[in-house]
Simulated assay, not measured.
Amino acid sequence: MNAKVTSVFLYVSDIVRSRDFYHEVVGAGVVQELAEYEGGPIALVVLRFGSFTIMLHPQDAHDEEFRDQRLGLGIHLQIQVEDVDRFYQHCIEQGAIIGVSGEPVDQSWGWREFALRDPDGYVWSVYQDKSDGHWTS
């Protein structure tokens, strides 16, 4: 059985702030924005990195489901970039929250990486694969 992960659906507290973070800081293209009715608030934002899709949905519509949970807790995502140091500098210039790990560091498995948080606390490892093909992503 072949399977391929194609997208992630993230509940967020402020859909516009999250859209701007993923588009302006991380570089995802905004594919679509939908409201449940014309002139209504945004109910879904679809962003894309290559063939991977991030779908943002306002958490407040699901308050009951999240009563005892905190957004962003328990999920850690990854973004591969060509130049992690340049991407790190871009994040700093955009005011992204880098406090998870600090500056990029070289890992024993051949990645150079750092981690940042989105506005709701979802953690993203941003890495450059420097393993000369030993690591397959």
Rank of each mutant, 00 (worst) to 15 (best):
M1E: 04
N2K: 15
V5D: 01
V5I: 12
T6D: 13
T6L: 13
S7N: 13
V8C: 05
V8Q: 09
V8I: 13
V12S: 04
S13R: 03
I15K: 00
I15R: 04
R17N: 09
R17W: 02
R17C: 02
S18M: 05
H23V: 11
A28K: 05
G29K: 15
V30E: 15
Q32A: 15
E33F: 03
L34T: 13
L34W: 07
L34F: 13
E36K: 15
E36I: 13
Y37I: 11
E38L: 01
G39S: 00
G40M: 00
G40C: 01
I42E: 08
I42W: 01
V45C: 06
L47H: 03
L47N: 12
S51W: 15
L56N: 00
P58M: 02
P58R: 06
Q59H: 07
A61K: 10
H62Y: 12
D63R: 15
D68A: 12
D68W: 12
Q69C: 06
Q69G: 14
G74P: 00
I75R: 07
H76Q: 05
Q78S: 15
I79A: 10
E82F: 11
V84C: 11
D85M: 09
Y88R: 14
Y88K: 12
Y88I: 13
H90K: 15
H90M: 07
I92F: 12
I92P: 11
E93S: 11
G95R: 04
G95L: 06
G99A: 12
G99R: 11
S101H: 08
G102Q: 14
P104I: 10
D106H: 14
Q107G: 04
S108Q: 12
W109S: 06
R112W: 06
R112S: 10
E113M: 14
E113I: 12
E113V: 10
L116T: 02
R117M: 11
D118M: 07
Y122I: 02
W124D: 00
S125C: 10
S125Q: 12
V126H: 11
Q128V: 10
K130R: 15
S131R: 09
S131W: 11
G133I: 09
T136M: 08
T136R: 06
